[in-house]
Amino acid sequence: MTNSMTFDLAGWSKLARIGSTNAIVGLSQMLNQEITISALSLDEVSLKNSDTLIGRPDTQVIGIYLLFSGVTNGQILLVFQPKVAFELIDMAMSMPPGTTTTLGEMERSVLGEMGNIVGTYFLNAVADHIQVILMPSPPAVVQDVGGAVVGSVLAEAFAVHESIFVIRLLFEAIGRKIEGKFLILPAAD
């Protein structure tokens, strides 16, 4: 891969592994908790089969969303069930499990910081590997139904192309039922 960067499936496959591994390191450090990758995949997704990314579209989720720019552009989305996001906040703030029950200003700030760390660790690893600069935007934290959150991200991704590459990462905390979905949608060149 060169700086002109032809982003095909094989090229992104290696970058997905490098970036995701580093992102999980960042998350583990922030939470002071060992987090492991339970599944990592890279798929080419078309509009027609994009419902596999959304899951149940009417289920409430909490999403942390960032854009990235540089030699290529793209989007990053972390998606959690609300109770999982609340447990992550409790872990990050060293509070007993069950303390956080709503998404207020402070809770949004904690999740936004989580998005910053995970996104930056991912992008830095990828950028270091291919010797380029990739910059994340500030994060947006949103609670809504899954279809609205993921669908809005997909709308942006499908603006130019009929199919997109999606990196899907599932992770979990040892001994705790923490599972999240980490989608990276690079803009294909």
């Binding site: 854009l67 994060p139 991200v153």
Partner: peptide, 16 residues
């Protein structure tokens, strides 16, 4: 046509 994802700053998507 909602703006569900509001990125702070100048990164607004405005697709909605």
């Amino acid at each position: 046509g909602a703006s569900v994802l509001n990125i702070p700053g100048e990164h607004k998507l405005n697709i909605g």
